[in-house]
Simulated scan of single mutants.
Amino acid sequence: MQITSIIAIYALFWVMTAFVMLPFGVKTHDEAGIPKIPGQADSAPANFRPGRHVIVATAIAAVLTALFVLNYVYGWIGADFLNLFEDLLSTPS
């Protein structure tokens, strides 16, 4: 596997992880007991920390990329393993 492929896979895992993590650990102003600014949306986060979000997404994406590359090298899970309908599609002899 080329390094450019690994970087592209890492970027995909990073973006996916960052978006999946967005709703976790965030509280609204009502939940945190902080007064809202006039005109602020009720769902606006009160404790969003983008730096921590980036660090956690980076770590998770690195682990997922490492597992993906190791699976590519050692072939732990292949296409034949994921074929759930093999018995249904095979014709009887």
Results as ranks from 00 to 15, higher is better:
Y72D: 14
V73F: 06
A59G: 15
D42Y: 01
F81S: 10
Y74G: 00
E86P: 01
A61W: 09
Y72L: 10
A57V: 11
G75S: 05
D42P: 00
V69K: 07
P38R: 02
N47I: 13
A46W: 01
A59Y: 04
A79C: 00
A44W: 05
R49F: 14
A44K: 13
L67A: 13
D42Q: 06
A62P: 04
F85S: 11
I55R: 09
P38F: 04
F85T: 13
F68P: 00
I77A: 02
H53A: 11
F68C: 08
G75Q: 06
V73K: 11
F81Y: 03
A57Y: 11
D80W: 06
A57R: 10
A61T: 06
N71Q: 04
P45Y: 12
K36G: 00
S43N: 13
A59S: 12
A79K: 06
A66S: 05
G51H: 07
L84Q: 05
D87I: 01
D87Y: 03
T65C: 08
S43Q: 11
N71I: 01
Y74C: 01
G75D: 09
V73P: 01
G78Q: 04
A46Q: 10
L64D: 08
A59F: 13
N71P: 03
N83S: 07
A57D: 08
A44F: 07
P45E: 10
Y72F: 12
L82V: 10
G78T: 14
S43G: 06
V63F: 09
A62Y: 02
F48I: 14
A59W: 06
R52A: 13
A57F: 14
P50A: 11
Y72W: 12
L82P: 04
Y72H: 12
N83K: 15
F48S: 07
F85A: 13
D87V: 05
F68E: 07
H53D: 11
G78Y: 00
I37M: 09
L70S: 07
N71A: 03
A79T: 09
L70Y: 02
V73A: 06
F48Y: 15
G78W: 00
N71F: 02
A66H: 01
D87T: 07
L82T: 13
P38Y: 05
I37Q: 12
L84P: 02
